[in-house]
């Protein structure tokens, strides 16, 4: 435990910032010591999309019906036109409209 008075809070914030910075820099740092082969490159290329999907899973599971319909609208528009901004705008509009009803 650390007390938040007498500068303790500032130290805690600095430690949090340091841990977060390590996470930001660490991925590239680690990869720079891993020998790059076709398997490693295949791994990180496939991981790229999976990170996003994994971030999305709880969002989609925990969202209310309006939120889930918003994601559906975005997915449909992306599948049809592949233009992110209109797809995102449509998703938000759907969420707002469904909740207003």
């Amino acid at each position: 435990m650390m007390a938040t008075e007498a500068g303790g809070a500032l130290l805690l914030i600095a430690l949090m910032a340091l841990v977060t910075l390590l996470a930001r820099l660490g991925g590239v740092l680690l990869m720079s010591v891993v020998p790059m082969g076709r398997r490693v490159e295949g791994f990180i290329n496939a991981m790229a999309g999976s990170v996003l999907v994994a971030v999305l899973v709880p969002v989609a599971v925990e969202a209310d019906t309006a939120g889930q319909l918003a994601l559906l609208a975005t997915a449909v528009l992306m599948a049809l036109y592949r233009r992110p901004m209109p797809a995102i705008a449509a998703g938000i509009l759907v969420a707002a409209l469904v909740r207003a009803v």
Partner: peptide, 13 residues
């Protein structure tokens, strides 16, 4: 839902 829709559009782009 903005971040969720944004991330989803990035997956599908």
């Amino acid at each position: 839902m903005v971040m969720g829709c944004f991330m989803l559009s990035m997956v599908l782009a």
